[in-house]
Write a protein that binds this DNA or RNA. Structure first.
Lengths: 203, 203
DNA sequence: CCTCTAATCCGAATTGAATCCGAACAATGT
DNA sequence: ACATTGTTCGGATTCAATTCGGATTAGAGG
């Protein structure tokens, strides 16, 4: 960002630009996203866009930042309920919630992730990583018998990144022979069996 | 591809262009990849490039097609040895092989995947999906007690996509607190515990 | 209410890359 | 040797990202 917004007006402009970016990307497809279109949908001039973003890439970055921010906002309130559930049910509940978010607005977020996210921007997933780690910590706090599970760090890494991409990929893949529920149950079962085994089948 | 190469000469040209694309992307970074540079490194004129590719995106597609083709070529010969190993060791061996491929040539493939792959191009992973499925099939053929594992389809889907992205992400993430070996063992343990559980601990 | 200043907004002009085109060139068959 | 078909080339064109300098607006101080 070339300039940091200081007044309410400009903060609204920045928001409108990010929102417009998501709309244009979802509506016109990745090859047809131009800064002019984004600015026009946002109801501002091109120049204004460049007041707040170094370049088009920066707008993309902000767009994905917005998506993960929304995802975190959606997940965090679920934590108290999730920690009360058996692992398997908790994971399925979580996956359903994320799926719902991705499919809102005609799948706008899913489409944007599918077409605009590349591995360069993965660091944008850090907030998601944090909230999922928080969930996991709360969970083992509530279920101390799981403490014995070794390798919690690797597990959470795998679940967060593997899970996220598997989910996005699957939801974007119309030809997949696998139903969403099967996938969700598969993920849940895999984690569950690992946890139960590490914890000595005490669950 | 605007035109399909028919003679050996033109097939060489196409190959040179794809190769040049990988080189330029790895050497100059994604924002500095131009069709002119690719053509120049390939030793052909820009126009020639457009004889065989509709546009720059198509060259990218071919580049990633090449990467997965190489990966498949690397994995397939390992299958006979892998099916003789315990699951855990087989997976770790497999992950090590893929890692080695990704890190060859100063990490050219890894860099290209990190910066150029987006979820739109995921269908390029189909050949990889196939060879990994083949491995899994051979494995259960060799170890019939695993037949009882339910949900093999979901498992393989999760392992293939989740595993692939987790691997690429992790290798590209210099700040990760997790070592590669821990990650590989985590993946292996997760799959192993799932399989053993489904098979009734008979392994 | 009226200035004054900094913040914000704008869009025509610039720049540079992707793509197209038609002429030149090579290979192959007759 | 000629014709035909496939291949290569680089200049001309198009189109979008970015810049720039001036116009507009918000909001503090008088």
């Amino acid at each position: 960002m070339t300039r940091k917004p200081q007044q309410a007006r400009s903060r609204a402009t920045v928001d409108a630009i990010v929102e417009a970016g998501l709309i244009v990307l979802a509506r016109e497809g990745p090859e047809n996203v131009t800064t002019r279109k984004i600015a026009s949908v946002a109801g501002v001039g091109v120049g204004s866009l460049y007041e707040y973003f170094d370049n088009r890439e920066a707008v993309y970055g902000a767009m994905f930042g917005r998506i993960t921010k929304d995802a975190v906002a959606r997940i965090r309130p679920l934590i108290p309920a999730l920690v009360e559930l058996p692992i398997r049910d908790g994971i399925i509940r979580l996956l359903d919630a994320v799926r719902a978010l991705l499919e809102e607005n005609d799948g706008r977020y899913l489409y944007c992730l599918r077409h605009g996210m590349n591995l360069t921007r993965h660091y944008k997933l850090r907030p998601l990583e944090r909230v999922l780690n928080e969930l996991m910590m709360q969970y083992v706090l509530r279920h101390p018998e799981l403490m014995r599970a070794t390798n919690l760090a690797a597990m959470s890494y795998i679940f967060i990144y593997g899970g996220t991409f598997t989910l996005i990929h699957h939801l974007s893949d119309p030809e997949s022979a696998l139903g969403f529920d099967e996938l969700a149950e598969g993920l849940a079962d895999m984690v569950t069996s690992y946890m139960e085994k590490s914890a000595g089948m005490s669950l």
